Computed example of a mutant assay.
Amino acid sequence: MNNSNFNQTGGYPLTTERLQELVTGYKIFNAFGSIAGNYTIISGCELVGNTVKDGFIFIDGELLEFKSAVVTPTSTVVIVETQIIRQFENITIQKPVYTYRHATFGTAEISWLWSSFIRPFETKLIQNTFNSFTTLVNNLEKQVNDLQNKLSPIEQKLSTIAEGAEVNVQSDWSVTDILSPAYIKNKIDLSSPFLRKSVFNIGNVGSSGNVNDTKMTVSFPSVGTSNYMVLGALRGRSAFWNDDNDVFWTYGNEQSTSFEIFLREIVANTQDLKFYYVLIPL
């Protein structure tokens, strides 16, 4: 920076030019306010009660002393300029020799809302703030990567869904077309529990006029096993139910191609019965 050397011998040429050099020299300090930015509180200006104390603020490239004043929510900052007048030696008149400028609260044609002024953080904290920001960015990047890893399988799955796919398909058990949206895959075959379903004609039980037992053999193509259970029902003629309902039955001697049914009538009537049965493997 510029420098004045006063400590010399031989009679220093102290003129108004040398003094102006001093004024020019200290004006350079206004540049430091730009580090904080326009409309900033450089130092002081603490709020005590409803009063902003003395300090320094930066306005439009000029570092100004702030004089304490009572503040309100709508207070505006103004610049007050005072001329210092002194008597000159060789004339009888007085002239301004110094201009004192400071800021405070007031009203003027040019003013700035006090609420627009902020206090910057100390520059020595920038590194710590930067380190914290870097850590935050790294953590966010990791979270984004983790989220992307979770979303990728979902995106791949969604990409397999055809455009215009049915949202609410009505499934239908009877549909056999495997290309139909209503087709049900891996249906349970309802006939699978049964080895056989059939009807056997019994006719009359016993001989006419006598109450006795009757054994009959129910034959069929081989079901591949004799380990099964017979579930059945006797069905009579609707017009002769009072004759046909006098019979009960049981079964035995299971073979892979037949079983025996044993019937007994309670009253010696003439029946005309059919035996509806299914074979269930055990």
Rank of each mutant, 00 (worst) to 15 (best):
E166Y: 13
K157W: 11
T40H: 06
I280R: 04
S256N: 13
Y183F: 15
L19V: 15
E17G: 09
P13I: 00
L158T: 07
W173P: 08
V137Y: 06
I110Q: 10
W112D: 04
L279D: 00
A165Q: 09
K53L: 12
S192F: 13
V223C: 03
S34W: 13
H102I: 06
S207C: 05
K95F: 12
G164S: 03
F66D: 01
N242Q: 11
L190E: 04
M229K: 12
Y251N: 12
Q8R: 13
Y98R: 11
E46V: 11
V78G: 00
P13W: 05
F29Q: 07
L147W: 05
E81M: 06
N242G: 08
G44K: 03
G10Y: 02
P13S: 08
I93G: 13
V144G: 06
T250L: 11
S68N: 04
T40S: 13
S171I: 00
A103K: 00
I59N: 01
T40P: 05
Q170M: 06
M216N: 07
Q271H: 13
F262K: 06
L64G: 01
T9G: 09
Q170C: 00
E254Y: 08
Q156P: 03
E81D: 14
K53S: 14
I184R: 11
Y183P: 03
W114N: 07
Y277P: 02
T9A: 12
T72A: 09
F29P: 00
V52M: 12
R237Q: 15
V167P: 01
D177A: 06
D177T: 01
S222F: 05
S207W: 06
K95W: 09
N227L: 14
I178M: 08
T134F: 04
I84R: 11
V77C: 10
M216A: 12
N204D: 15
I85F: 04
Q255A: 12
S152F: 07
T82E: 14
P73E: 08
T217D: 02
V169N: 10
F58L: 08
N245V: 09
R119S: 09
D189I: 06
L263G: 04
F105T: 02
W112C: 07
T51Y: 06
A162N: 13
T176F: 09
E21A: 11
A103C: 03
E163A: 10
L231I: 14
V97K: 00
S34C: 02
A103N: 03
T16P: 06
D177C: 05
P120K: 01
G10L: 04
Q156G: 12
Y98W: 08
